[in-house]
Nucleic acid binder design. Structure first.
Lengths: 360, 360
DNA sequence: GTGATCTGGTAAAGCGTTTAACCGAGCGCC
DNA sequence: GGCGCTCGGTTAAACGCTTTACCAGATCAC
């Protein structure tokens, strides 16, 4: 692999000159520029970014640490961040923590060794954020994504969970439901707490008491949606609607409903956080609070790069992105008699159930 | 950010000694080791991997260039590669090309500048692979993922598309179908060609003529699945089953079927490449050729690292990963009267259709 | 014509490591 | 007691680039 020295030699100039034509940091004559460029082309020379980084004490790599790229919410975020970053000459180095704080520590350490310019972080829950504190103390910019690291002052791009949940539950209430269950995430996570809070606020607004027996604490994974779904359906609660706090738990719940022979929305209305996109092909199409993942990623990356380049200064602040409620067929009017009317309000209406008889 | 010099100073040793205790490249006394380690801890020192990379002329970064991480097939691959790589001390630098060769070129160039040790590549289709040839000529190991770069000799981890498609279509034939349509990808891609080939082989085996009017060329995207689905359903073809060459086109087809009022599998059987995981919650559960994405990623990464470290030598070779056919409810016996029997053969049986009446 | 200014180029230091070469002290051995 | 080893540590060069300071020659004002 050729170096700047060989380019200089071939072009008959000094390495300083080569560097200047590459970076455009000084004027050169047309002739010299020409010679340098052809030398570069002929040698298939690529400037060594590693050497450059060492010299300028700055890389153009952004660390991106996420719980699990396999969760369909995150790829969107990554795309948003990557597109924005690439445009400005930055690169993403990604790693998954599986929500394990130990793994996160090792990843953050490795990323620090690589001297990433900044870090986009959706941290795993834990009560020891010392590795993040030290990271920041060492001068690396970090912006949190989707969740705060409690006790650590950083920029953050978060979803307005309270609002999303509140509007979603409000919608169920408007549809006549008064007994609405909730399947939450781990309540030690901020996200889960906020969504629960939105749920409670919506109920209180409508003077509906918050009933502990309608609150099911899950952990944001499919299995817990399934298990809690079984509990919810087996127990003789009188819930007519369920608000599920994320997409994959909803999948679990749907499985449970299938097994229990509970129909949606005829027997039970459903509204969920997260839009799985794919579910628009299958039935029931889900009423959902959709998070603009791409935008969140893009905004976070922009803030991070602005911090890195000093275009943004001052104390850290949080950006709350407002999600959108999309009404689809999984939520219906209560009592059932009113379903016909309810239907008319929906923006996205199913043409015909796929697995049900075509003509009835 | 402290450097090795400061650590050395604080520990009262030379920088060489510090390096040796970090890398374990030379024996040191217990006392010195102790002093160095505490100095490192107290200063919160992280070795500068950039400087190290410059010196040893090797990074531990692996470039991973994919068409689009938003396609649910790829995150699995990434996880497989990342987990394997991280274990061996490597990192993944990811970037998306959107199948645009221009973007791929820029990404490969950037990755070359960063002196990645190797590259995992699912290249965008094009008839000019010079950037890859030059990359290899410059000494960077590359292993292709999911698709070959035509005319470029590299290691590759590919799916046995012919076999997957053949077995899938064979299954439809065994279920009594004789008129089976196919929705392919862009036939200029190798993947699409191979799947078509498998389809044809299965038909020929069963002495069923290959009919041009049953072959619908799409482009692996949802929209084309939808459009071709409309065509297929509107035209009075006598297809009783469809084999779709990837998952998202199947989603498109399902939409078309919904609009046309065609039921699955009652009116039309379906089998598809790709397992969308999520579809197991919704109906119809899809009979699918599942690609072991995680394994593919892991194998590719292993090969790449073995090449980099010289543990693997010799001419490049291709690994063909065999997919698995999973029978579910979207494919049924033909004629319809036989459906009851067919059902018994399925490993995954639906309990009860979700949107259909619970008790009939 | 002469000193000041500008222009296009170069020399060289330094970024933070690794590592080959070196070196002195202690030690066992005849 | 002198020889050769081993052991534990150090010195210093090098990796490929950026960038400051410098320089020689051309240009210019007067």
């Amino acid at each position: 692999m050729p170096t700047i020295v060989e380019v200089a030699k071939r072009a008959g100039v000094s390495i300083a000159t080569v560097s200047h034509v590459i970076r455009g940091t000084k004027r050169v004559t047309r002739d010299v520029e020409e010679r340098v460029r052809t030398a570069i082309r002929e040698l298939d020379y690529f400037p060594n970014e590693i050497a450059r980084s060492l010299k300028v004490a700055q890389t153009r790599m952004l660390g991106m640490v996420l719980p699990d790229i396999t969760n369909p919410f995150f790829p969107e975020i990554i795309r948003g961040a990557e597109d924005t970053a690439f445009e400005r000459g930055y690169f993403l180095v990604t790693a998954n923590t599986d929500e394990q704080i130990g793994r996160e520590r090792r990843i953050v350490a490795a990323l620090r060794s690589y001297r990433v310019a900044g870090m986009l972080l959706a941290s795993a829950p834990s009560n020891d954020a010392s590795h993040i504190l030290r990271l920041i103390a060492s001068g690396v910019s970090v912006v949190c994504l989707d969740r705060h690291v409690p006790g650590v002052p950083t920029d953050a791009v978060l979803l307005d969970n309270v609002r999303g949940a509140r509007e979603c539950v409000r919608h169920l209430i408007q549809f006549g439901h008064r007994s609405i269950a909730i399947i939450t995430g781990h309540l030690k996570t901020q996200t889960a707490q906020e969504r629960l809070q939105g749920y409670e606020e919506a109920l209180r607004e409508a003077d509906i008491p918050v009933a502990g027996k309608l609150i099911f604490e899950g952990d944001f994974r499919e299995e817990s949606g399934y298990q809690l779904g079984r509990q919810l359906l087996e127990r003789p609660t009188e819930a007519t609607a369920v608000f599920v706090c994320n997409g994959v738990m909803t999948l679990g719940l749907l499985k449970a409903m299938e097994i229990e022979g509970v129909r949606c929305p005829e027997d039970l209305s459903l509204a969920t956080f997260d839009d799985l996109t794919i579910d628009r092909t299958f039935h029931p199409h889900l009423t959902a609070v959709v998070q603009p993942g791409y935008e969140m990623g893009a905004r976070a990356a922009t803030i991070l790069m602005d911090r890195i380049e000093g275009k943004m200064t001052g104390p850290p602040n949080s950006l709350r992105i407002v999600p959108t409620l999309v009404l689809r067929e999984s939520s219906a009017m209560y009592p059932k008699a009113a379903m016909g009317r309810a239907r008319g309000r929906r923006p996205a209406v199913a043409q015909r159930p796929l697995t049900a008889p075509a003509k009835q």
